[in-house]
């Protein structure tokens, strides 16, 4: 089975800064990491590979990331965690892509690779939309299951998934090829092994631009993005409310007075 895993390189901290002039993330000098949710996606991809291989179907995991050249670091790290090869989708033309475009570009790579299974994280900790996984499925015309908490069964044609939903779990059968997005409880990512890290060091990262995935210029980047960021602002900090301290009966009375003045009670 051919399995793809989509990973995004995100800032290493949650203290991201926005450039007020360009309305984009300040990425310079910021430590990066693999989007934490994608580590679960990758681990699941590697486990499916191991499971299928053990069952007599020699399988591989290809990691894909769309991003700037330094996203190569994230791809190497993914190899140290068990991926076999890695593709970096990088092209000036991709700059400014919104989630529609990001999904489109990733889907074009998926179409070229034709994997039976694509696994994504639940969401990226910076963009936070959770749209890219389902977007890939639509653009590539794959089936999809989001928020997967367990792959219960899998064979060459279909899989049985347990999905996390607000009220509990939903069980569904998904025909392959399919895109899954996974939640944290699906597994426990492994620690990089010496074998993995050495493989990562030697690995050749394949680089594809718009031409290689046959994505027309008008469909990618700023040009292809139906949405534009007009303005980004930091919401003002909430002003602290009033705090009453002292004897309970007295402050309760005071609170009652205040609330009656406001005609709340």
């Amino acid at each position: 089975m051919k399995i793809c895993c989509c990973i995004k390189q995100v800032p290493g901290t949650t203290e991201v800064k926005i450039n007020p002039e360009t309305n984009t993330l300040v990425r310079e000098g910021v430590e990066t990491q693999i989007n934490p949710f994608d580590l679960y996606a990758l681990e699941e991809a590697v486990r499916v590979k191991e499971r299928m291989t053990a069952a007599g179907d020699p399988s591989t995991v290809t990691v894909i990331s769309m991003g700037p050249p330094q996203a190569e670091d994230a791809l190497r790290e993914a190899i140290s965690l068990g991926a076999d090869d890695a593709i970096l989708l990088s092209d000036r033309a991709f700059a400014g892509s919104d989630t529609w475009c990001t999904s489109y570009v990733l889907a074009m790579a998926v179409k070229k690779l034709q994997p039976e299974l694509v696994i994504c994280g639940m969401q990226a900790i910076d963009g936070d939309t959770g749209q890219v996984g389902p977007g890939i499925a639509i653009h590539a015309n794959y089936a999809q299951a989001s928020y997967v908490a367990e792959i219960q069964e899998i064979d060459a044609k279909k899989l049985a998934a347990k999905r996390l939903i607000e009220e509990g779990y939903e069980f569904c059968e998904v025909k392959l090829p399919a895109v899954l997005t996974v939640v944290k409880e699906i597994n426990e990512p492994r620690t990089p092994s010496l074998r993995g890290k050495m493989a990562a060091k030697k690995a050749e990262i394949i680089k594809w631009g718009a031409a290689e995935i046959e994505a027309p210029a008008e469909k990618v980047g700023l040009l292809g993005s139906p949405t534009q960021v007009v303005k980004i602002m930091t919401p003002p900090c909430r002003e602290g409310g009033e705090k009453y301290e002292g004897e309970t009966s007295i402050i309760v009375e005071k609170l009652f007075d205040v609330l009656s003045c406001m005609e709340v009670v």
Partner: peptide, 27 residues
């Protein structure tokens, strides 16, 4: 070290290896 470990029944797959601060954390 790995060569010695392999001769003693270890393997590079069963060896955690960290070269950055972040990778050091689980160890």
């Amino acid at each position: 070290v790995m060569e010695a470990a392999t001769a003693l029944g270890g393997s590079d797959e069963d060896t955690w290896y960290a070269t950055t601060d972040r990778e050091m954390e689980p160890l």
